[in-house]
C-alpha cells in the first residue's frame, strides 16, 4: 500500500464510518475494513474499478462525487476521504462543502503544483509540468483546478475550515505544515495531506 494511504489510515480512528470518495480499486477501503474495523463505503466513477471493489466484498457505489455526494445524509460518516481528485472537479469548492456535510471530518490529499520540480519545468522548459504525481500532458490531463499546498492552506483559512492536521509528503517522509514553514513545504513537497473539519 502506498505511503499516502498509510498516512490517511493513521489519521482515522478504529471502529468509525468512512466514505472513500473516488475509492479506485478499494485498496484503502479494504485496509481500513480489515485492520481498523472501519465501516467503509466507496464512491467510484469507473465501472471497472467498481467491479474490482465488488470482488473484494466492498460496498461501492458507481457515481460521480459532484452529483452523488448529496445522496448521503448529513453527518452520516465520521470521515470522508478524497485522495488526489479535488483538482479534477468542475467545482472543488462545492465538493469540499459536500464532503464536510456528509462527514464530520474530511481527509483531502493534494498533488502540489508548487513543488520545485513542477516550478522548474515551467520556468526552464516553458512547458506544462509532467511529474510522477502529474503524469498527464496538458491536453489529456483530467485536472481542471490545480493548486499548491499554500493555495489549499489559504483556501481553508479563507473559508473558515479548521485544519486539524496538515502534512507534507516527500520521498516517503512526512512533516507537519504550519504557517511558519508553509513557504518551504510548498516548495519541497510533492503531496499535501489535510484533515479538515467545518
Amino acid at each position: 500500500m502506498k505511503k499516502e494511504f498509510q498516512i490517511i489510515s493513521d489519521l482515522i480512528e478504529n471502529n468509525t464510518r468512512v466514505l472513500d470518495v473516488g475509492c479506485g480499486d478499494g485498496t484503502l477501503m479494504k485496509y481500513l475494513k480489515d485492520k481498523k474495523n472501519v465501516d467503509t463505503r466507496g464512491l467510484e466513477i469507473s465501472k471497472d474499478k467498481v467491479q474490482m471493489c465488488v470482488s473484494k466484498g466492498l460496498a461501492v457505489i458507481e457515481g460521480n462525487a459532484e452529483k452523488d455526494l448529496k445522496q448521503f445524509p448529513n453527518s452520516s460518516f465520521n470521515y470522508a476521504v478524497l485522495s488526489q481528485t479535488l483538482q479534477a472537479f468542475y467545482d472543488p469548492e462545492k465538493v469540499i462543502d459536500d464532503l464536510l456535510k456528509v462527514a464530520d471530518k474530511a481527509i483531502v490529499t493534494i498533488p502540489n503544483f508548487g513543488f520545485w520540480k513542477v516550478r522548474l519545468d515551467l520556468l526552464i522548459k516553458g512547458t506544462m509540468p509532467v511529474t510522477k504525481n502529474l503524469p498527464d500532458e496538458w491536453y489529456n490531463t483530467p485536472n481542471l483546478h490545480m493548486c499548491t499546498l499554500k493555495d489549499f492552506f489559504n483556501f481553508c483559512s479563507k473559508k473558515k475550515i479548521k485544519l486539524f492536521k496538515s502534512l507534507a509528503l516527500h520521498n516517503e517522509k512526512t512533516m507537519e505544515i504550519n504557517s511558519f514553514n508553509l513557504n518551504l513545504k510548498n516548495l519541497s513537497s510533492e503531496l499535501g495531506i489535510f484533515l479538515l473539519e467545518k
Binding site: 467498481v50 467491479q51 460496498a59 457505489i61 445522496q71 448521503f72 445524509p73 452520516s76
Partner: peptide
C-alpha cells in the same frame, strides 16, 4: 440506492 444509503445500509451499485 439513495434510500438504502439514508438508512445506513451497506449498499453497492453498478450500472
Amino acid at each position: 440506492v439513495i434510500a438504502l444509503n439514508a438508512s445506513g445500509a451497506e449498499v453497492g451499485f453498478i450500472e
